[in-house]
Write a protein that binds this DNA or RNA. Structure first.
Lengths: 130, 130
DNA sequence: TTGACATATTCCCATATAGGTATATATTGA
DNA sequence: TCAATATATACCTATATGGGAATATGTCAA
């Protein structure tokens, strides 16, 4: 199987940073495609394709006005994302605690750190070796 | 170019629902890989691969304990996602206004709806036709 | 050292991009 | 009807999956 379609849900749709940029741009007020192309410096077909994805998951709404098609962000569609992430709110460390946390971490440096990809033994060193 | 790597940032990493499930599961308390496999009913290699992605973007931390490796969600890494989505908070419609909004929409049904993919003329009907 | 247990990685494959280029479609004005 | 404007779609290509199967790596107990 391959990765889920970008149009499968909001999470996949906003994974692309350009699409997030577009959503931010269209949140202020509705805009025609041309404005997005100019503002974000992207190719017109590229913008149209991104808008298509965003539209398919309901993140933007379109309205035709003459030759132009005005798009606007449908902020409500972003709520699921916000709600999911807010689920972890109670686990967040408060700013003031971070210094303390870091200090404690430095105290016991001994066993190999399994977290930083670089420190992870032979993840890439092996490939290079051959 | 292809889609950005799942390890390129938190947004891409959480685009996969299984990974979100894992994060939720590991938020309560640290767990060995085997527990995730059992709880989410996934293949062990699959879980390991997802954990690898999550670890690369800092969404989980790992700690070895004997033969087991305990993982736990690093909730702080989810904050950027929450902060980005919260940006649109001021544009959200409040529950009570939704009924009103819907009512207004039904009032002027005339021009073709550019939004719903289904209603969108010949998006797929053309392909079928050949 | 050996065997069992716990995870990680490698390989293979079908699929879904995202960008670039070319072209189709829609709308308006002459 | 025709040309110009504004968008959308089609096509091609390189790339990055995610799942399944097989295998490698690491750790502990006997």
């Amino acid at each position: 199987m391959s990765r889920a379609a970008t149009t499968s849900d909001v999470f996949n749709a906003v994974a692309e940073s350009r699409r997030r940029d577009i959503l931010t741009f269209l949140a202020i007020e509705e805009r025609p495609v041309g404005d997005i192309v100019a503002a974000l410096e992207l190719e017109q077909p590229s913008v149209s394709k991104h808008l298509r994805v965003l539209r398919d998951v309901g993140l933007v709404r379109a309205r035709r006005e003459g030759r132009k098609i005005l798009y606007r962000t449908n902020a409500d569609a972003i709520r699921p994302l916000n709600e999911w992430s807010a689920t972890f709110e109670r686990y967040w460390q408060h700013q003031l605690n971070r210094v303390k946390e870091r200090t404690e971490k430095m105290a016991g440096e001994s066993s190999p750190d399994l977290n930083s990809p670089e420190t992870n033994p032979d993840t890439k060193s092996k490939e290079k070796k051959s």
